[in-house]
Amino acid sequence: MFDFDALAACMSTSACLVNQATSGLIIGMLLFLVASGVTLIFGVLHVINFAHGSFYMIGAYFAYTTYHITGNYFLAALVGAVGAGICGILFERLIISRVYGQNLLMQLLVCYAFILIVDDLVKIIWGAEYLAMGIPAEFRLPPLRFAGGFVPPFYLFLVAVSVFIGIGSLLLVTKTRFGKIVRAAALNAPMVSALGIRVNVYFALLFGFGCALAGVAGALAAPVRSLTPGMGLGILVESFIVTVIGGMGSIPGAFLAAIILGLTRSIGSVGFPLFVDGAMFMIMALVLIFRPTGLLGQGAVR
């Protein structure tokens, strides 16, 4: 089960180290984008969007189709993000907003139903087979050499976009007027609406933004991962682990935890391929036992 020789051999060559680190980083970045959506929505609306993986899937499939029609990846990524965002707003307005403040069971069931419906719709529209998008034409460039390892240019793009979006969403919540209103509404919605602000609109926009983050992640993942109707759930569970490790509601925490998990995955695939999932759960269990609020989370465990 454990192959420490292979691990040590990999650790001692810079080429292998660079390759594993970059692949760990892109896994981490995709996780970060999805998890920051979950954490943003939870931080303000106090609902767990158990259907968040579906928006990741929607983003990926939208990007896939757009790329096939237009051949422009940047447009495809944009369509993936906006499409997922719009679906998110509709989902919030039509479904989730009806179970705000109700018990967790109702929220869970509604999301469960939504996942069933969306997975089946994807099967009807795109088929149940695995789809592969391939590296888009814009990025079919020779890989960059870095300390003996190879780094595909698309990976750099993926990491850069993710970091940019991560910083952007942090600033959006902490510095802008939109962020201030949303945070105020999270603390006292009736008061904010008494000041003449349409709280519902802000909640829907925030929910849509969180879903758009998942959509971006899906669109970015489409070239490097295969697309299947069940793809949302795998990333959902991992992004839950990220939010638990990083601390619920903390975007920097999600970033840190996503990188830890990404590296665990990529380096683990060399040293203990069968125990990668186990290692992730072990990290989570350790964090929960010794620091239940997560690495960078504040306040009491809800």
């Binding site: 767990i48 569970v237 839950f240 638990v244 186990g278 759960f281 269990a285 239940p292 465990v301 809800r302």
Partner: peptide, 24 residues
């Protein structure tokens, strides 16, 4: 591990451990 946690965390973790067993 799970029972100490309330509501959302509990649902999360039980789901996560189930998916762990599934992958095993």
């Amino acid at each position: 591990i799970c029972v100490r946690l309330t509501e959302i965390y509990f649902a999360f973790l039980t789901l996560a451990f189930q998916m762990f067993l599934y992958s095993v």
